[in-house]
Design a protein around this nucleic acid. Structure first.
Length: 491
DNA sequence: CCGAATGAAAA
DNA sequence: TTTTCATTCGG
């Protein structure tokens, strides 16, 4: 077996700045499949993006960076090849406020949220809605035939609920932004799957509405949504426009009907496996390596994390240790992470990331990016007791033994899950635009540790200071928890 | 009614 | 090349 060096081999970033999401995307896409560490030169490997993206980097329409690889519509027949938007449009200039409001993700949603209980929409069932159901939808929309969703809309739809839960807010603008950021980071398998679903959706849509043709309205038309014209209305008033520049469409634009007050719209359970229309059937997507629909490993949701990523009960202020869990979320709690029950198992965790070595690598160190590029790098380095910048060619030779590989893979998996929790915390803090000064953080921790009984009021006051007016709401911490979390015995 | 995202399709 | 519109629902 040959060890392939992961990362950008050929064309690297011309400028000194990294690709940001691209590197992380490759990290997650490749490392999770091959289970080998990445070597990342930049010190931002942890995924905390503080600076702005280089102007050379590929960006989304909102200015965020995007993956470098092309659209997975590979050599497909009719799909257009170049999707690159115009370099500069007036709209782009106008929206050039340079403030990327949404915090940056460090991994695709399929990875970040894989342990959540919130189900993912059953897209297989959704795109395979029978024509009868589609006709009913059209009827419920007063005859208006909607466009089939493209791959991204399907993706957004599939992950909307989870994204909301993960972001702890219901704002769909944020959902869209997060999904838009996650989409290019998704591994090719996932994107391919959603592209296939989009193709199926177009196919079934066409079969259900053979005469449908996309006929967008003229921009200047002000989009008079109130008026209803039937699906294949005749060409009529569209040609009469003041500017005269516009050549009327061959088919009159389909105007959305105004819904009647008592009109019933599509049930939001449609498309889920719970819908009686459909039978539950596992798809390749469900069985993918990321276990998208894994319901058995919930992320504890009634916990908070301190500045070091250590979980504690926000209501009592006590630090927590998870019982009978496969995972440890706190870098400093030496609970065993083995898959076996492990109640009396000796913690082999010594290092900050659950490593057999004795080198302490705190989260703060990671955050600062001083000692290690990534937690992954730290883990790998400790495994091999090498410096952080050792050449990987040598390292690969050192770990060529199968035993060490397996050990590493296991540690990698544990680190992955630990990282998820950490990243989630980072996201929420970032979403709250919170930067914790270490001294403040320790004060905050002290205030939490002092009383055995900490009133909710005190906590919320403290949290209110932390999160300010913005994004994070307390619902996240008040949600019921699935795994059992208990106060850690203070010593 | 706008926005926030990506992509299909039309102009 | 540029625009609309699929989705969603809080502001």
């Amino acid at each position: 077996m040959a060890f392939t060096r992961i990362g950008r081999t050929g064309v690297g970033p011309s400028s000194g700045e990294d690709y940001g999401l691209d590197a992380v995307a490759q990290h997650n896409a490749v490392a999770t499949t091959e289970k080998f560490p990445l070597y990342q030169e930049d010190a931002k490997g942890l995924g905390i993006y503080e600076g702005y993206i280089s102007s050379d980097a590929i960006r989304t329409r909102s200015g965020r960076s995007a993956a470098r690889h092309d659209s997975p519509f590979s050599v497909g027949s009719k799909s257009r090849v170049s999707k690159s938007p115009a370099a500069r449009t007036k709209k782009e200039k106008k929206a050039k406020s340079a403030k990327s409001k949404t915090p940056r993700l460090t991994a695709p949603l399929s990875v970040l949220t894989k342990d959540m209980n919130t189900p993912i929409k059953d897209m297989d069932a959704w795109v395979n809605r029978p024509a009868e159901v589609r006709h009913q939808e059209t009827e419920e929309r007063n005859g208006y035939v909607t466009r089939p969703m493209n791959s991204f809309m399907l993706y957004r739809s599939a992950y909307a609920e989870r994204t909301k839960a993960w972001c702890t807010q219901n704002n769909h603008q944020v959902v869209s932004a997060v999904c838009g950021e996650s989409w290019p980071m998704e591994p090719q398998d996932v994107r391919d799957q959603f592209n296939e679903w989009a193709r199926l959706e177009r196919e079934n849509h066409q079969a259900a509405h053979p005469d449908y043709k996309f006929s967008p309205c003229k921009p200047v038309n002000k989009r008079r949504k109130g008026e209803f014209s039937d699906e294949e209305d005749d060409v009529s008033d569209v040609g009469a426009d003041p500017d005269g520049d516009y050549r009327g469409p061959k088919v009159a634009c389909q105007k959305r009907p105004v819904p009647h007050p008592g009109q019933t719209y599509l049930n939001n359970t449609v498309g889920f496996s719970s819908n009686p229309y459909f039978t539950q059937q596992p798809t390749g997507y469900d069985n993918s390596q990321y276990q998208y629909t894994n319901p058995s490993r919930p992320l504890p949701s009634n916990i908070a994390y301190d500045h070091a990523g250590i979980p504690y009960d926000p209501h009592t202020g006590q630090y927590l240790v998870q019982q009978q869990s496969q995972y440890q979320y706190s870098p400093s709690i030496g609970a065993s992470t083995n898959t076996t029950n492990s109640t009396n198992e000796t913690p082999r965790t010594v290092g900050g990331y659950g490593l057999p070595g004795d080198q302490q690598v705190s989260v703060d160190d990671m955050l600062a990016g001083q000692r290690c590029d990534t937690p992954m790098q730290a883990l790998f380095n400790q495994m091999n007791q090498t410096s952080a910048y050792q050449q990987f060619g040598q390292v690969y030779h050192q770990i060529a033994q199968q035993e060490q590989q397996q050990q590493f893979q296991q540690l990698f998996q544990e680190q992955q899950e630990q990282q998820q929790s950490y990243e989630h915390q980072q996201y929420l803090q970032s979403a709250a635009r919170l930067t914790i000064d270490p001294s403040l953080g320790s004060d905050f921790m002290k205030s939490l540790q002092t009383p055995v009984v900490q009133s909710d009021n005190q906590f919320e006051t403290a949290m209110g200071e932390m999160i300010g007016n913005s994004y994070v709401n307390m619902d996240f911490f008040n949600q019921p928890t699935s795994p059992t979390w208990s106060p850690k015995t203070q010593k």
